[in-house]
Design a protein around this nucleic acid. Sequence first.
DNA 1: TTACATAATCTAGCAACGCTAGATATGATG
DNA 2: CATCATATCTAGCGTTGCTAGATTATGTAA
Lengths: 193, 193
Amino acid sequence: MGAPQGPNRIAERKLRDKQARRANIIRAARRIAELEGWSNVTVRRLSDEISYSQPVLYAHFGSREGVVTAVATEGFQELGLALEKARKRVKRGSTVEAVANAYLEFAASLPALYEAMFSLSVSVPFGDAASPSELRLAFSQILELFQGQSSNPEVLSELFWASLHGIAELTRTKRFPLRRQKERVRALVGLFR
Amino acid sequence: MGAPQGPNRIAERKLRDKQARRANIIRAARRIAELEGWSNVTVRRLSDEISYSQPVLYAHFGSREGVVTAVATEGFQELGLALEKARKRVKRGSTVEAVANAYLEFAASLPALYEAMFSLSVSVPFGDAASPSELRLAFSQILELFQGQSSNPEVLSELFWASLHGIAELTRTKRFPLRRQKERVRALVGLFR
DNA sequence: TTACATAATCTAGCAACGCTAGATATGATG
DNA sequence: CATCATATCTAGCGTTGCTAGATTATGTAA
């Protein structure tokens, strides 16, 4: 069977182009943010990068904030996958430790992405049914850790997430010296094991 | 003895006026931020509130960021005092619990101030000798909790702060439902007691 | 192929922002 | 009163997010 015929073909091509351009914008935003900070991610700069005029960006995302939200959503997706991988591939040692390390490594290696997810983006609940699937996926990876282990896995998961987020954020904003990071993680794992 | 004489009098009066106006600006910034969000704290808006032109603000703080930093510094001062009060006045129950509750109540009751302290302001290390005294004061209140109780009070203090900050931040940004807040604190205190 | 209609894209500009140079007013001092 | 420094303001620059209206490209049909 060859390519589909009829007028659908061109609609499909247009859709592909649209998605590709959308991905381009997000990629450009992430690159600039990671290299030069989010304050340099302006609408004009983004439209320069993709060689289109500004209104094209608004057709895709509605606002600058929409771009940040899209980046944040990608971030939650990737974080969820990273945590899942860590949880499933662990051989020796505790899964709690593996997930904690994966979380903090994610936050440390992509600080601008993490910033978009937690400091810049609009706030949507984690566990709620109304939450985007990306957020529920990520949270479920942590929930899985304490399922059955505790009388109240939900509360313990939230607490574990909060601790990781606090460490990540205070490290990202240079409040904590990196020097003691290993000890911090060890102490954290000790508390939650 | 009456009022001091000589030309010092007017210099002193000018200094008082200056400090009063500075306090006015900070107060206005805090009020607007708490009521309408930090995005509404513009230089023009602030100069309107104090009935002076914009350059006056720059004479005091150098930049808009300077205003936010000044607010954040006030915030650390007040947080330190609140934690100290909680730590010293506790009668029954653990001091850890009292401090945790004081911290979270502070963050919940003044979300814009907390945002200035941790999300908007420039980042300065907590424990470092180069840190502003306000930060060291606040951190020392937590350090005090674990002094002698643990083999490594510094790491444990950082971890405790991180957990509190994570809870506060994820609550402020509506990631956590307020419903389970009490349970979260109970679980947290259980881990650190 | 040509004419048309729809969709895609751009040009140009608005209002608001942070910030500052240069003009003006104020007030203490001889 | 005249002087001079200090305090304050006016006016405007460059940049931002965003949008209305003009313009070009593109698929459809005669």
